[in-house]
Design a protein around this nucleic acid. Structure first.
Lengths: 242, 242
DNA sequence: TCATTTACTGAACTATCGTTCAGAACTTGT
DNA sequence: ACAAGTTCTGAACGATAGTTCAGTAAATGA
């Protein structure tokens, strides 16, 4: 028993390479999960997508469940980070919500970093499962609070915030089912349209646009949120064939 | 080779019993699919839910894929039927859309008849797959036309109908992920709240309620759409553990 | 009651899944 | 160049999935 990977000395190139490979695998697995779902993504598929042998995956993760766990965990962390960033801003509730919606779609649709936060499965060990559900609830609670505060200050119409937040998150999460990076709509365009519609349903007053005006950079430029959003949404396969 | 089941003579009790059993199986399978997803619902689970031996399932369906196909097919037929009923009504676009939304949630959440129109999987043979996708597109097209006509007559705000319809259907379809028949909200209550919010996002004018007034029976009584909606939505497991 | 058709079942078959492991190939430090 | 450490792989294992089939139980009609 010699120096382990994590306690290796000084520079730690090996540790860095190890972590980099882990991320590569997570990216490939996320893409695979998004494309084929969890159950239909075999370890052999993930390995092929990550350009590794199936056996080698087990040098980086304990098993399939751990890969899924980290996919969801990092995505949830990014969702929560975007949420808290929005909360700290001194803008209207509508503009905060817009940032959350746009960030959410980016986390879920992005071709490179996008993962599958929504693919919770009973296949996960109970401990990990509970941790994810808790984190997900924290996120949902936060978004709901955003709606509640908007309702309190009269910006939003009175409504059941628990229902509104689930309608919004449902619309966002379902997008991975039909989104096609080669289609006619970029992820950024979808995000804009969704935000317009989903926020309008909450507004008390028609309010011309309700896009951020003083803080226009919140949503622009689109290529900052979706740097590689060059492919487009296809018209023909309305729903994915999954 | 004697008389087959379908060509059996006169009264045809056997044929009726056969079809009834088929429906029982479809109901049990639909419940199972909704609860555990397609991949995690084994033939042995479906058989247990339908109170049959696994082998006996193959006397009624060619295989698992055919069970899924019929589950989705009958659900899509019901969705399209509700859509066309709404289109024939002489009411506002908002009220038509409300009927479609409420019917959709009923088709998807109902504890007895509800199925899983959204569980398209690559596991289906190409022929069946295409048939379902086509039907699903017909439904989506119809709902989008509803939005377009509402926009044309000034009732709805100008927007991208393709995005709006996907946001709406996404919110509706995602509901099976978190809906809990034992929870605090009945399916009918969810339908009302969702319809309020999702339609408000399209309206050009705030328009107090926009529930059907002259045709109040379109949405009332709730127990007509959800005859057995007595169980309630739970508060704790925000997302299903699937 | 008996013969025929229909409904059903337990056990086994095949394929595929996640996973393991002995050892090869490569990298690194001296 | 050599040894130590690491990264990787092909082949196999056990479990479980969907499915099949020989044959039993039940229903039907005379």
């Amino acid at each position: 028993m010699t120096k382990s990977r994590l306690t290796s000395r000084s520079d730690g190139r090996v540790a860095r390479r190890y972590l980099a490979r882990r991320l590569e695998i997570l990216r490939a697995a996320g893409k695979q999960f998004r494309a084929s779902g969890f159950a239909d993504s075999g370890m052999r598929d993930i390995a092929a997508a990550a350009d590794l042998s199936p056996a080698n995956l087990y040098n980086y993760f304990q098993g399939k469940h751990e890969i899924l766990f980290f996919c969801q965990d990092v995505t949830l962390d990014r969702l929560i980070a975007a949420l808290e960033k929005a909360r700290r801003l001194k803008v209207s509730a509508a503009e905060k919500l817009r940032l959350v919606i746009v960030s959410h779609l980016r986390c879920v649709l992005d071709e490179i970093e996008g993962s599958a936060a929504h693919l919770l499965t009973t296949a996960l060990p109970t401990r990990l499962q509970r941790s994810l559900v808790l984190k997900r609830d924290r996120y949902e609670d936060g978004v709901r609070q955003l709606i509640v505060s908007g309702t309190r200050n009269g910006e939003f119409v009175p409504c059941d915030p628990a229902l509104a937040v689930r309608a919004i998150l449902g619309a966002l999460n379902w997008s991975v089912r039909w989104f096609n990076p080669d289609g006619t709509l970029t992820a950024a365009e979808i995000a804009e349209g969704f935000a317009d519609y989903l926020i309008r349903g909450l507004l008390a007053k028609p309010a011309s646009l309700h896009r951020p005006s003083t803080t226009r950079n919140l949503q622009r430029p689109a290529h900052k949120f979706f740097p590689q959003a060059t492919r487009r949404h296809d018209e023909v396969p309305r729903f994915s064939e999954r």
